[in-house]
């Protein structure tokens, strides 16, 4: 599903963000990417989204080598990747329903599809009753659930989550994790960058730890610390 072959990323300012990283993530997997800030987590996600280009190496997503993807083709790659962020990034002047529907408009879905899919994902994330509400009237957890609904409404095979629980209290974080688990159980591959020890330890999923741009640990059903 996702393969990195000897990927190196050096930024123009001299930062060596990733050093010769190779990685294989299978379809339907749930993988945590952990590590301190500056370890290369964000760069990894950005490479997958084609926000930055690798200096060396190849990246293969869904059997397609995206290393030399033309600029014109990037949007179509991104349609295969749902994304959620720490800061939710909902549009404040649109309701929850409109925010989710907007993701479908952008990929030119028919109004019929929009009317069918949006209520479906909203009920899946438990926001059916808040469909007509604006983001500033929602709690943090609800906002992240709305963002999740937007990320999965177009049925992407892969979901990238960049510290999705970073701004949430522990209780709310677990709601989001439960949702991610549900989404994963439906077959979506999930890659989640995080700092949170508790979550990683309790989820018992694959853990990939980065340090100074290198993979120092890659364990199935791992924990945040090696001793776990």
């Amino acid at each position: 599903m996702i393969e990195l072959c000897n990927v190196t990323k050096n930024y123009n300012n001299g930062t060596k963000a990733l050093k010769n990283v190779s990685l294989f993530i299978e379809k339907g997997e749930f993988a945590f990417i952990i590590g301190n800030s500056g370890s290369g987590k964000s760069t990894l996600l950005k490479l997958l989204l084609k926000e930055v280009e690798p200096t060396q190496g190849d990246i293969i997503i869904n059997g397609q080598n995206i290393t030399n993807l033309k600029k014109k083709e990037i949007p179509y790659l991104r349609r295969k990747l749902g994304v959620v962020f720490q800061d939710f990034r909902l549009l404040p002047n649109k309701t929850v329903y409109e925010n989710v529907a907007f993701a479908m408009q952008v990929v030119e879905a028919t109004p019929k599809e929009i009317r069918r899919n949006v209520p479906m994902v909203l009920s899946m994330v438990g926001l059916s009753k808040k469909a007509r509400v604006y983001p500033n009237q929602l709690s943090g957890g609800e906002q992240q659930r709305a963002a999740l609904a937007r990320a999965i409404v177009n049925n992407p095979p892969i979901l990238l989550a960049d510290e999705p629980t970073g701004n949430l209290d522990p209780g709310t974080s677990w709601e989001i994790m439960k949702l991610l688990k549900d989404i994963n159980n439906r077959g979506t591959t999930i890659i989640m960058a995080t700092h949170e020890k508790d979550i990683v330890d309790k989820m018992k999923k694959r853990v990939i730890e980065l340090k100074e741009g290198k993979i120092i640990r890659d364990l199935q059903k791992g924990g945040y610390r090696n001793e776990n």
């Binding site: 989204l49 014109k72 949007p75 991104r78 349609r79 549009l91 907007f102 952008v106 990929v107 177009n154």
Partner: peptide, 10 residues
């Protein structure tokens, strides 16, 4: 920014 992440064409 959001449109770009969702996969809107240029």
């Amino acid at each position: 920014n959001i449109m770009k992440y969702i996969g809107a064409t240029d």
